Amino acid sequence: MIRRVTARPVLLACAAAAALTASFRPGLPGEGRVFDLMLVVDITGSMMARDYIVDGAPASRLDMLRRALPGLLQQLPCGSQVGLSIFSERRSFVLFDPVEICAGYDPVTRAIGALDWRMAWEGDSYVLRGLTSALDTARDRGHGIVFFTDGHQAPPLADRPLPGGDGTPGLIVGVGGLAPVPIPKFDDLGNETGFHQPDDVAQASSGWTPPTAAAGSDWDPRVDSPGSTRPGEEHLTRVHEATLRAQAGALGLGYAPLAPGTDLATRVMDHFPGRRVPVTRPLADWLGLACLLLFGLAHAWRFAGRRPPPIPPNQRNERILNARHALFRPGRLGHGPGTLRRHG
């Protein structure tokens, strides 16, 4: 006697086979795009200005980067390599060369979380020189750079011709808001003691020769910007977006602002071409989904099999007649004993 096989055991067997196959993490060969990048972070004093909101509280620009950069790493494909550098004074210093991000995610994110303004070796900030320093290192080592800075220079520099680029790929990310905010001031022990005042910082360009002060002029090189008769604002900071865009254009780099809600990973991956490498596309997720779907169908089939069999036509007609007789039996409609009265 041949036993009929129902669909439910077949569905359960297929679901079990899918789950077992997924446990071996199978994959299909293909081609993917990976990136080789050096993240360069400005750690000068202006990066401690608080013009971001994180978790409902004011946060410094450096705090914002410590939060945003791990998210960037999470979205880059495995096989990408990322290194970390810091910028202070007039050059960028490599903390470590690019490493594969999936295998090295924990140490890289811990290094990012440890970034601090106290790591700076000088208080000056010559952004353009730090940017060209990072590009020189990247050219020698064969990777692109993502340079995070607010563009605040200390002391301020006079306008001068910008150097040309050499083809090294790079992206400048402007950090900070457009409105000027005060720069925190710290003592020798690293304790915040307030904010910088106009007399605390150089307001005039160190490379600019001021005109002879005319009689009655209120221009003062200690507090006035070049060519200005008003007090300077170098004790305040904002992202110098126009300057950073000009520098990026001259050097053949891209520019992107780090505004709240910015998808930093998309900006980075859209800008850099990356390199093509053979990759294995995992199938475990798809097999897990198929397993859940098959189990769901088997469960639904179980309840579908419990439905009562359909009523044969002759029995259905008999039931209808019995229901009619029960409804119109004598006395049902309140006419008293006897049969139903005919109205005519």
Rank of each mutant, 00 (worst) to 15 (best):
I2A: 14
I2C: 12
R3H: 12
P9K: 02
L11N: 10
L11E: 09
A15T: 13
F24Y: 14
R25H: 13
G27Q: 12
P29C: 07
G30L: 11
G30I: 02
R33L: 03
V34G: 06
F35D: 00
L39N: 02
V40R: 04
T44S: 11
S46N: 01
A49I: 02
R50K: 05
G56S: 09
A59T: 03
R66M: 05
G71Y: 05
Q74D: 15
Q74S: 11
Q75R: 14
L76A: 00
C78M: 02
S88Y: 13
E89N: 15
R91W: 09
S92W: 03
G104N: 08
V108N: 01
T109D: 01
I112W: 00
A114M: 03
M119H: 07
M119Y: 03
A120K: 06
G123S: 12
Y126T: 14
Y126F: 13
V127Q: 06
L128I: 11
L131K: 04
A138T: 12
R139P: 09
R139S: 07
R141W: 09
G144S: 07
I145W: 01
F148T: 08
T149L: 01
H152I: 04
H152C: 14
L157A: 08
D159G: 08
D159E: 08
R160Q: 08
L162P: 07
G165R: 05
D166F: 06
D166L: 03
V173M: 02
G174C: 02
D187W: 14
D187R: 04
L189Y: 10
T193E: 15
T193R: 10
T193P: 00
P198V: 12
D199R: 14
A202S: 12
S205L: 01
S206D: 13
T209F: 02
G216I: 07
D218H: 14
P221I: 03
V223L: 15
G227W: 03
E233F: 13
L236E: 12
L244S: 06
R245K: 15
A246Q: 15
A250Q: 00
G254Q: 01
D263S: 07
D270F: 09
F272T: 10
P273H: 04
G274N: 06
P278T: 06
V279Q: 09
W286Y: 08
A290W: 04
C291R: 09
L294A: 00
G296W: 01
A300S: 12
W301P: 04
R302Y: 12
G305C: 04
R307W: 11
P308S: 10
P309K: 08
P313Q: 12
R316Q: 13
N317C: 10
R319A: 15
L321T: 05
R324G: 08
L327H: 11
R329Y: 13
G336F: 08
G336K: 14
G338Y: 09
G338R: 09
T339G: 09
